[in-house]
């Protein structure tokens, strides 16, 4: 099932240090290396403090690594850009714009007519099933709907990779499953790579072709697992349960060691 083999994102020997309250250096990441292929779906999983969000922010270009290098298509990442779309955990939609205006925002940088922009935005909203909500403001939408709009906004500029930081953590379990199904559908339709941060084992196994398990203090990669089961995956299957058990065990070990 693993689609591409060419490396899209290259994280090599990255450490991230920040100054704590008393000025003492704290290691968010220590010597982390990771390759992500073109079209690949990778989940980063680990307890809080394991540096999974930091790693995602490094790829997004929000941070520069203290040591090591992060490259995108063989070029070092110098800052955020439209080739790497981000969906945040909190609601990041612009509250002063309707759903359609939010989706249109990223298209302003492209040489498109007003009408074309509008049509592309409506198409993108249609793909996440929210055409009817195009003229609604974020506060008029449910949490799940807002994250759908956020996904449409990120995808409409056709990024090479979608960086998702626990995007479904704040929605209820039933909505989360629908959002997961939709994400897999969009991933297949667009061929975009996905780096998905989560602390939910079930979510990681359901979505990812590869699960990267991380541990805190200092943030590091503990293991990587390729999951080659076909989509859609059956949460009730024995293989699913087995994977759940082993990842869960690893996370508990990592956390206990650190605590």
């Amino acid at each position: 099932m693993s689609r591409g083999t060419a490396s899209l994102i290259d994280v090599s020997g990255v450490s991230q240090i920040y100054a704590g309250r008393d000025g003492a250096p704290t290691w968010a990441l220590r010597d982390v290396s990771l390759q992500i292929g073109d079209g690949e779906f990778v989940c980063l999983i680990g307890p809080s403090g394991c540096g999974k969000t930091t790693l995602l922010h490094l790829i997004a270009g929000f941070l520069q690594p203290s040591r090591g290098s992060v490259a995108f298509q063989q070029q070092p990442i110098l800052g955020p850009g439209p080739d790497r779309g981000v969906v945040f955990q909190e609601y990041a939609l612009f509250a002063w714009m309707t759903a359609r205006q939010n989706v249109e925002f990223g298209l302003r940088a492209k040489p498109l007519s007003r009408g074309a922009r509008r049509q592309l935005a409506l198409d993108a909203l249609g793909r996440v099933g929210l055409l009817a909500a195009a003229d609604k403001y974020p506060h008029e939408l449910s949490g799940g709907m807002r994250q759908r709009v956020a996904v449409a906004r990120a995808l409409v500029v056709e990024p090479k990779v979608l960086l998702m930081d626990e995007p479904f953590a704040a929605v209820d379990a039933m909505t989360r499953q629908t959002l997961q199904d939709d994400l897999l559908r969009l991933w297949k339709e667009t061929g975009v790579s996905v780096v998905f941060v989560t602390h939910n084992i079930d979510e990681a196994i359901f979505l990812a072709q590869r699960v990267v398990v991380m541990a805190p203090h200092p943030g590091a990669i503990v293991s990587e697992r390729i999951i080659d089961a076909d989509y859609p995956r059956d949460r009730g299957s024995a293989a699913f349960g087995e994977l759940y058990g082993s990842i869960s065990g690893e996370l508990t070990n990592g956390t206990r060691r650190a605590a």
């Binding site: 997004a60 800052g79 850009g81 439209p82 909190e90 990041a92 612009f94 925002f105 990223g106």
Partner: peptide, 13 residues
Amino acid sequence: LIYLRSAACLGAS
């Protein structure tokens, strides 16, 4: 900060 980051990764001028 999330608004500025959103704008930046959408390629806004």
